[in-house]
């Protein structure tokens, strides 16, 4: 593995033990995040992108559980780390920005207290200087009048400001990695633009790596260096942002890009037929096969293996299973359903 890898996820599988059949929400997912880069994890609702994020920091709620794989962060496997140590990793190692800042912030705690708590818990500030640090962080995320805002309650802030506060909390302990789960989805487009700009600036200033989870391909195109596309619990395509947007290989990626309005006004949009599958009753072969315009007989046999298209670009689709066995990455044993 290259030395600049910050996080390496290997064959991560997360299962929800529900009746009548357990649901595999994250299925054999592998990716890495390098120092200083933004990996965009894109998918529709139910694709498993948020569960992936929660699995990384071991916050999957019961009946969900991480059933297998490795999450190597700064050289150690987080799935084999003790809970007290994990508590240190969360916040100091990996910061988190959630979609709904109102739900993530405590309504009876002042803005400053959220930031101070993070600093004090991780032993990075004493009670007396936590407030000054909080003001500094609020200033860093471009909140005007931070000396006053530090004493506000979350409900006194606009949605965009709350998301800035979330970022200040996430950045408080200067974690090398921040996971942002749909950070702009609940925001207006002009506020979204400001938050995306801020994320970019923070990334540079704090020397961060970013895992950006979103369903919005526009946000991905603007922000990500590399992209992983998830469908029904699996990563079906991965590559640099240019490879994914200019040379998509998987019919699902192609369909997603084609369904974005933008062509001739009034023309029919190129929709993907059918609906997102129910994870409890996935087809035996490729989960996208029932909706796929290029479906072949082989697609219904087993989930396609990973094919390497280029150094960064991989895809799981029988259209691209390479005739050259040397170019093909063998499927890890025991991952077929």
């Amino acid at each position: 593995m290259v030395s600049d890898t910050l996080l390496a996820v290997e064959n991560l599988t997360t299962v929800f033990d529900v009746r009548p059949t357990p649901v595999v929400a994250v299925n054999d997912v592998s990716f890495e995040i390098r120092k200083g880069e933004t990996l965009g994890l894109v998918g529709e609702s139910g694709s498993g992108k948020s569960v992936t994020a929660f699995s990384l920091i071991r916050l999957v709620q019961s009946p969900g559980r991480v059933a297998g794989g490795k999450v190597i962060f700064q050289g150690r496997d987080l799935l084999a780390t003790s809970e007290p140590e994990m508590r240190h990793v969360r916040g100091a190692g990996i910061g988190f920005v959630f979609q709904e800042p109102m739900a993530a912030l405590n309504p009876v705690m002042r803005v400053g207290a959220h930031i101070a708590e993070a600093l004090i818990v991780h032993g990075l500030a004493s009670k007396s200087d936590a407030r000054a640090r909080a003001v500094e962080l609020l200033r860093a995320v471009l909140i005007t009048d931070p000396e006053k805002r530090v004493d506000d309650y979350p409900h006194q802030l606009s949605g965009g400001m709350r998301q800035r506060v979330m970022m200040a909390v996430a950045l408080a302990c200067k974690p090398p990695l921040v996971i942002a789960d749909e950070p702009t989805t609940a925001l207006d487009v002009t506020v979204q633009a400001q938050i995306l700009d801020l994320l970019r600036d923070m990334k540079r200033e704090f020397d961060l790596s970013l895992l950006l989870i979103t369903h919005d391909l526009g946000v991905i195109a603007e922000t990500a260096d590399r992209v992983a596309v998830m469908y029904a619990g699996r990563i079906v395509e991965q590559g640099t942002v240019r490879e994914i947007f200019h040379d998509p290989m998987h019919p699902y990626t192609r369909g997603l890009l084609a369904s974005i309005p933008g062509g001739g006004a009034g023309s029919r949009l190129k929709a993907i037929d059918g609906t997102v599958p129910n994870l409890a009753s996935l087809p035996p072969g490729c989960s996208f096969a029932p909706r796929c315009p290029a479906r072949m007989a082989v697609c219904d046999t087993a989930f396609p293996p990973v094919t390497a298209i280029d150094r960064e670009h991989t895809v799981r689709c029988y259209l691209h299973t390479s005739p050259d066995p040397g170019a093909r990455i063998p499927e890890p044993a025991g991952t077929a359903r």
Partner: peptide
């Protein structure tokens, strides 16, 4: 103008010219 410029284009090579209001 600000609203139009804030919409992220689904193209990594699209020029980004954000107009702030």
């Amino acid at each position: 103008k600000a609203l139009l410029s804030a919409v992220p284009a689904p193209d990594p090579d699209a020029p980004r010219a954000r107009i702030e209001l």
